[in-house]
Design a protein around this nucleic acid. Structure first.
Lengths: 199, 199, 199, 199
DNA sequence: CATGAATGAGACTTCATTCAT
DNA sequence: CATGAATGAAGTCTCATTCAT
């Protein structure tokens, strides 16, 4: 039941946080650019911190839902176990990339939040990691099947997380690359090759 | 020819920046903890920004030198082209990891700096990328030999950069993992597999 | 629609600026003596400079209005063109002197402002000059009638401006002289003689 | 026995004081622009104030000497008392204007000094006034002869002082006017007319 | 729900001056 | 005589937050 003004504040905050940084953005500026009085901001959020965290949570949830809901039906089942696993992972992968590219501001905010020392969370609790919880399952399965290399899970998850960051960062900085198949396919190819068992 | 006090300031700044964040660290606190008057800080650095950038440059240079100088002699030459290339890259890889693990504060500062929106540099000009300039050479060579996959260079460099971040972040957060061969070797294995030509 | 606090700040600023000089007066002192928090001052004026300029403009306007409005009805019309012109100019002259004597603080502030190199305006745009715009008209008329000497207008205006300063400075420094007719009349006599055609 | 460095400091100070104002000019900047160490400035002048006052005194003396020495021989004696007096005063007048026009920086510094509230001297002790001490004599003589109007001396001196300021200010701001006879002659004509007995 | 004037702690920076070399 | 690193008080300005309307 978010009021119109409250949403204006959240939208403006997202924009300014990404442009100038979270700490560097004054609450007064958010209020002003949202066409709202200073007091109004603190009427909806008791602190600046609460505003930031609320914004974070809403985006995080949005991302989680987007990935888990929309990916499932895109898997191409196959007789070949390897192909099925690869298809599953590829589907999630694309979904995640797609989300980042269609919500660059939100994606950048998540990055900023994760790196802000004031909010710094252990990597283990990060959105990316937790959102990609489904991966654990897929990877474990792949390892048992012998398709994926038997490496320690924390290492693998970190690998997934950072490879995702690598690709989205590159594509958001230079969106024209996102259009080129050599980049899109190459990105997944590297990701996949890093995971599979050595031939 | 850095004065003693100037170095004290830089050392203290590094410590506090990593502990509390760059923006959140007051110049007055740096000066106080460095046993120096406020004015002294501004005698050596005309700005807080200049202090930060100076610190960044010095660490960046240190890292660059450490990697490029110390790695060269660790390569194991071989008759096999593939093995030579792998050995070269592995040597740089280990050197880079080693540096991060022995200078965790400096490494964390580089991370913070790279993510601080006030200093945000295009990722392309980042330390990691520029320091790893030597990689371009090695990768190009590997691609011509058919050892490494022929993927766009920006993608490959990004992959290298972020995989390095993934591993160092994990190891600095949980240093005990750094001791385990399964992690050390696994990290490089994933990295290498991601680069090579599909079998 | 000036808030009460804003006016307190302006009043206090005027007092302190004249007592100690503009540059030498700290914003904190103004706020304190105005029984207002530091932040309040900067809530109403984004700068110290803006405070100073606002004060200047308000006083300048007050002076302009006082001279142009209140002088008109004091002119003694006469059949003699010379007498009418002299009466007009005398009226403005007295009005201007009167204003200075009844607002010594404001008058002194205008002086300080005009001489402060940080705000230094070309003399041509100064209050005195611009406020006395009506003079141009009167002088031109007098010159055409042959009553006033045909001298270059910039020279004449400067003469008026500085003679006004000469007299007000003297009277404000030694107010007892202002009471003596020999001074009051003498001052205007010199002023007028300087303007008229040589006999 | 002024050292070379001391003179460099004085010269630079004069320049910067006029450009930026006395208060606004930092001693460190003076030293730097004079190619001298900070300490050196305080080696020659125990205070900033002493530097300022020293500069003031030297310029004041220079002006006094210039006027009193150089003017005497330019008087054109005549049988006519009126002409002699006028010639005397005109000679001083031109000398004073000449000095201002050939030392604009010094002239501007005197102005700034006289108006700086930190150094503010009663007008009576001002350079201009004291330098023009010779005027008192000439004016008194003129009043006794009936050539000059019998007005109170303080008023007359003030008139002289400010008319001088009026003219020099105008000419220094717009030096091209100084070349035009209509301005030069007009300036003195107004001055003289203001002083003489009403016809 | 909404407003915006008011607050005051605290941030960054400047600067006259000192002193050991 | 000359140097310039060092000092710390003081100045300007920012900002999250409160509260009366």
């Amino acid at each position: 039941m978010v009021t119109e003004k409250k949403q204006q504040i959240l939208d403006t905050a997202l924009l300014l946080f990404v442009e100038q940084g979270i700490q560097a953005t004054a609450t007064a500026k958010i209020a002003k650019q949202a066409n709202v009085a200073t007091g109004t901001l603190f009427h909806h959020f008791s602190n600046k911190q609460e505003l930031v965290v609320t914004l974070y949570r809403s985006i995080k949830d949005e991302l989680s839902q987007s990935i888990s809901q929309d990916s499932a039906d895109k898997v191409h089942p196959s007789d070949n176990q390897v192909d099925t696993l690869k298809s599953t992972i590829k589907s999630y992968w694309h979904q995640a990339i797609e989300w980042a590219m269609s919500h660059p501001l939100k994606w950048q905010f998540l990055q900023q939040f994760a790196n802000d020392p004031q909010f710094k969370i252990s990597q283990q609790q990060d959105v990316m990691t937790s959102s990609m919880a489904f991966l654990v399952e897929a990877v474990e399965q792949g390892q048992q099947q012998g398709v994926l290399a038997r490496l320690p899970m924390p290492l693998v998850l970190n690998y997934c997380h950072y490879h995702y960051l690598a690709v989205t960062t590159l594509f958001i900085e230079q969106p024209e690359l996102f259009q080129q198949p050599s980049y899109q396919d190459g990105a997944f190819q590297m990701f996949w090759q890093g995971l599979v068992t050595k031939p």
